[in-house]
């Protein structure tokens, strides 16, 4: 039952204005990707797909898209590979420096990307590692362990510990128990984390900015073009990215809806500030 709070008309209008503020720039961006006169100029005129055609024949953009997909996939792998055990360790192991470990793992969630990027840049320089897509992968993977850890830790909290005991009790060793009981129960958290990490990595620019070698990721490619001036081609690629983001969020929600409430992204943000 929803509580009967007296409806306030000014508040509803105010909320509508905030929504307009959040959405107008995005809508304008999309509209102008079809504008024959290029970016700007009111009203938009000459509906065209010219910019999309231009975009699809632009080799450099598609190279960078490919690079970004590669980086995102590898970042998901690294973040899960270390994020899953990290969540398990935070949940069930006591070790010296655990609090420090927790704080440091989660720090990249809240820290401006420039600090993560620069500190890694110094590490790679001191270690004599040449900058390339690999360094970007290491950067994204490491920074996004935080997302994997919070998601999976939340999953572990909801998971009934006695199930693992039951499995051990029935003769399964630790590894069998992990594979047959723990992992299937964390499935939703893991898929959710992977989706989130993938999207965040595809968008990431602050860390990549410092760790970039020769090959560009998509955001850096766009960034480079922006410095040279705005072109409707960028509206077109942004529209496509927006469409993909929408698909990701829909997928994410359908996944969540099947498990339970859609409150979790919120909870995750709350958790991440509690270092």
């Amino acid at each position: 039952m929803e509580l009967q709070v007296k409806q306030s008309r000014p508040l509803a209008w105010y909320a509508a204005l905030v929504f307009a503020f959040l959405y107008l720039p995005i809508i304008i961006l999309i509209v102008y990707s079809f504008n024959g006169q290029g970016v700007g100029g009111f009203p938009p005129r000459d509906l065209t797909l010219k910019w999309y055609r231009l975009l699809f024949s632009d080799g450099a953009i598609w190279d960078s898209v490919w690079n970004s997909l590669l980086v995102a996939a590898a970042a998901v792998a690294i973040a899960l590979l270390f994020g899953i055990p990290a969540a398990l360790a935070l949940d069930r192991a006591e070790f010296p420096g655990k609090t420090l470990f927790r704080r440091i793992v989660l720090l990249p969630l809240i820290l401006p990307g420039i600090i993560t990027g620069l500190s890694l840049l110094m590490l790679f320089r001191e270690a004599g590692v040449k900058l390339s897509l690999i360094t970007i992968i290491l950067g994204h993977g490491t920074a996004l362990i935080s997302v994997a850890t919070t998601e999976i830790f939340a999953g572990l909290q909801k998971f009934e510990r006695a199930q693992e005991e039951a499995s051990l009790d029935l003769g399964a060793n630790y590894w069998q128990t992990f594979r047959r009981v723990t992992l299937p129960n964390l499935r939703l958290s893991i898929i959710g984390a992977a989706l989130l990490i993938f999207t965040l990595s595809m968008d990431e620019i602050a860390v990549s900015f410092f760790l970039i070698g020769r090959a560009n990721t998509l955001p850096l490619e766009i960034w480079g073009r922006l410095r040279r001036g705005i072109t409707p081609e960028i509206n077109a690629i942004s529209t496509i990215i927006f469409a993909f983001s929408l698909c990701a969020i829909v997928a994410w929600y359908r996944l969540r809806m099947r498990s339970e409430s859609g409150q979790e992204i919120t909870d995750e943000l709350l958790r991440s500030t509690k270092l």
Partner: peptide, 24 residues
């Protein structure tokens, strides 16, 4: 939530196209 998922860069760029001297 949806704008959260829209690339940071895309949103900054959108404002640039809105606010420019021959912008929207």
């Amino acid at each position: 939530i949806i704008p959260l998922w829209v690339s940071y860069l895309v949103r900054a760029y959108a404002w640039k196209t809105v606010l420019g001297s021959d912008g929207v």
